[in-house]
Simulated scan of single mutants.
Amino acid sequence: MIVDFRRNTPALPPLTIMNSTVPTVESFRFLGTTISQDLKWDTHIDSIIKKAQQRLYFLRQLRKFNLPQELLTHFYSAVIESVLCTSITVWFGSATKSDIGRLQRMVWTAERTIGAPLPTLQELYTSRVRKRALKITLDPSHPGHLLFDLLPSRRRYRAATIRTARHKNSFIPQAIYLLNS
Rank of each mutant, 00 (worst) to 15 (best):
I114C: 04
V129L: 04
R158V: 04
T164S: 12
H145V: 10
L138I: 03
L147D: 05
R130T: 13
T137S: 11
A110Q: 02
D139R: 12
T137D: 08
D149Q: 15
L151C: 11
A160E: 07
I136M: 12
T113A: 08
A116D: 05
L118R: 01
L151K: 13
K135P: 00
A110E: 01
L138K: 15
P119F: 01
R154I: 08
R156D: 06
P117N: 07
N169W: 02
P152K: 06
A116R: 14
R158P: 02
P119E: 01
T164L: 04
A160K: 07
S127W: 04
T164I: 03
I136N: 06
R166N: 05
R130F: 11
L118K: 01
L118H: 01
Y125C: 02
Y157A: 07
R156Q: 12
R158M: 08
L118V: 03
R158N: 06
R156A: 10
H142S: 14
H167L: 06
Q122L: 11
R112S: 10
S170W: 02
R130W: 07
P143W: 09
K135R: 15
R155M: 14
R128E: 04
R155N: 13
L121V: 01
S153A: 10
D149V: 15
L138M: 14
S141Y: 10
L138R: 15
R112F: 06
I136K: 08
L118M: 04
L151D: 06
P152H: 06
H145W: 14
K168M: 07
H167N: 06
T113F: 00
Y157H: 10
P117R: 12
L118N: 02
A110M: 02
H145A: 13
I114W: 02
L124I: 06
L134N: 10
P119N: 02
L134R: 14
I114G: 03
T113G: 02
P152N: 07
R166C: 03
A160W: 01
T109A: 08
T126W: 05
R166A: 12
K135M: 15
T137Y: 12
H167Y: 11
D149P: 00
D139H: 10
P143G: 08
R132V: 07
I114H: 03
G144W: 15
L147M: 11
A159H: 09
I162L: 07
L146K: 13
R166W: 05
A133G: 05
A116L: 13
E111T: 15
P119S: 04
N169P: 00
I162D: 03
I136A: 08
T137R: 12
S141W: 07
K135F: 14
P143I: 10
Y157L: 10
L151A: 09
L147P: 00
A159I: 12
L118E: 01
V129S: 03
A110C: 03
T120G: 01
S141D: 14
R128L: 08
T109G: 02
P143T: 07
Q122Y: 08
A133M: 07
P143R: 09
L138Q: 15
L118S: 02
T113Y: 01
K135Y: 13
V129H: 02
